[in-house]
Design a protein around this nucleic acid. Structure first.
Lengths: 104, 104
DNA sequence: GCGGCCTGCAACTCGGGGGTTGCACAACCC
DNA sequence: GGGTTGTGCAACCCCCGAGTTGCAGGCCGC
């Protein structure tokens, strides 16, 4: 059920979305609240939140008539672990190739 | 000093670039060699390699008239560590906020 | 119940990036 | 030297996504 990595990074490859994530890192907030402290429209932020939710980095929390969002740091850490494993694997393989080449 | 995170993730948010990285993870290769086993033009791959090089994920290696590229797994792992730290920090802060709220 | 927030959906603009083709140039091989 | 292979640069097309405005619908409080 692990989400594929690429869409997550596509979501993380946007400055505005990082601003949103950073703001949410200081506490839950609604789209309107975020729009008040960011230089973009509420609708734009709503779309960004939808994207972040699709890749599992953020979670909506109904609070009466407003919808607050909570950042899911554990998901980010999980993604980080997969990334680290990939980097280590590549370095390991390339080192092995180099060793074999030197064996000649 | 450390490159900003966003461009790195923007670079990682593309399927074709991941195909390139995966291929390079099995051994160094030139743009032409990659074009032979991927469904895109050599020029497109060259542009992707330039992007990956700009964010430090890949390194060019001149070999006579051809330019092979090597994937830098350590850079990926370094990025992963920064990401993990961020996720942990967010979770820590939100947990602290929750604790304070329950103190009331 | 009624006016004011907050949300959701739809249509539109516009700039950027992924992909292509075409050509010029450099380096290897025979 | 001449043909072949690999690279670099430039122009072009085209689609997608970030952002906007506008409007309709739901919940609150008075």
């Amino acid at each position: 059920m692990t989400v594929t990595l690429v869409p997550v990074f596509a979501a993380l490859g946007d400055e505005t979305r990082w601003s949103i994530l950073q703001a949410l890192g200081e506490g839950e907030a609604s789209a309107s609240a975020l729009a008040a402290r960011l230089p973009v429209t509420r609708q734009a932020i709503a779309r960004h939140l939808a994207v972040l939710h699709e890749v599992g980095l953020v979670e909506p929390v109904r609070a009466g008539r407003e919808v607050k969002y909570r950042v899911l740091g554990s998901q980010l850490s999980a993604t980080a672990r997969r990334l680290d494993a990939l980097g280590a694997e590549w370095d390991r393989r390339l080192a092995a190739i180099k060793d074999i080449a030197e064996q000649l």
